[in-house]
């Protein structure tokens, strides 16, 4: 009997050692893996630039985006201002031309970045916060689950933009209303994601083990369930930023979003629609900014997903 166990000790030690070496070898830190992902790097860099543009808007050679100059209406990009502007400056170049009211399109596009990013980030933050709470409740309080999910199904049955349009039209248009109106249709998607994670995690043996060692529900959620929602929610939050920026632009474009005097990409384009055949620049420039920004956010989202949790591809 003794040589038997000795034999086991010798060889089995080797088996275990090999297995753990294997497990250790394939771990790179999250940050290293993110830095190696092209989509994350490119998307992140473009986003950083956009963020900088938004913050630094007044210092990027802009003028007051709301300033109306009737003498200089509908100028093509590159037109030089030869008489004195309201603020006394001279020799102004309309880099992107002017609109039908003679406002400087370049300044409006640059300032528009602010609105888009504010809308995107607040909608993402709000919908994730609400969705997380509701999703956790739905996943853990079984008797509420049915009711919550029916409400969410109902909300999801109304196409997002329609719901947003209707919500905006009911109250006075303003930044806060628009943010809220875009947030509400996004919430059910977050709720569903969180709920599905909670439902699958609570089946995990390590959660059951935590229950058997007497961990109470709040701790159980914080320690074992919530950490599993972080990666998916970061990814989903990124996608929500992209979609919120788009929806805001669409609402403004249709004329039902943020009031037209506030420079947003959608408003500039809405304004440029009428004379599009003659002066396409008022659609093309803000359209380009919008597309590049959303593209960057989406790339960032895809990159984050591939790095953090590739299985999310089919969940969202």
């Amino acid at each position: 009997m003794s040589d038997l166990s000795e034999l086991r000790q010798q060889t089995a030690g080797l088996v275990d050692a090999a297995a753990s070496a294997d497990a250790a070898a394939r771990k790179l830190s999250i940050w290293q893996r993110l830095a190696r992902n092209q989509s994350v790097v490119i998307g992140g860099a473009v986003m950083a630039v956009m963020l900088l543009v938004a913050i630094m808007a007044p210092f990027l050679g802009t003028m007051d985006p709301a300033e109306i100059n009737p003498a200089w209406r509908n100028k093509v990009p590159g037109t030089e201002l030869t008489d004195t502007a309201a603020d006394g400056s001279q020799g102004w170049v309309y880099r992107m031309g002017t609109d039908t009211l003679g406002r400087d399109t370049y300044s409006r596009v640059i300032y528009g970045t602010r609105v888009s990013l504010i809308v995107g980030l607040s909608v993402a933050g709000l919908s994730i916060a609400i969705g997380l709470v509701v999703g956790l409740i739905s996943g853990y309080v079984r008797w509420l689950d049915g009711i919550i999910m029916r409400v969410m199904d109902g909300l999801m049955a109304i196409p997002g933009i329609l719901l947003a349009i209707a919500l905006v039209s009911l109250s006075s248009a303003g930044l806060d209303t628009v943010i809220l109106a875009i947030t509400i249709p996004e919430v059910p998607r977050v709720v569903r994601l969180v709920r599905s994670i909670v439902l699958s995690i609570r089946e995990e043996p390590y959660v059951e083990a935590a229950i058997s060692v007497g961990t109470r529900l709040p701790l159980l959620l914080i320690r074992h369930v919530l950490p599993n929602t972080v990666a998916p929610l970061i990814v989903m939050g990124t996608y929500i930023v992209a979609s919120a920026i788009l929806v805001e632009a669409i609402l403004s474009f249709l004329g039902v979003g943020i009031p037209p005097e506030i420079p947003t990409w959608g408003n500039i384009m809405a304004e440029g629609r009428l004379l599009f055949r003659i002066f396409p620049h008022n659609i093309l420039f803000p359209g380009l900014f919008l597309a590049v920004t959303v593209l960057a956010v989406n790339m960032l989202g895809d990159g984050l997903r591939d790095t953090l949790d590739p299985r999310l591809e089919k969940r969202m």
Partner: peptide, 13 residues
């Protein structure tokens, strides 16, 4: 990714 990012009306125009 491109299709997701360019708004419908920009494509349209």
């Amino acid at each position: 990714v491109f299709g997701f990012s360019v708004p419908v009306f920009v494509v349209g125009y």
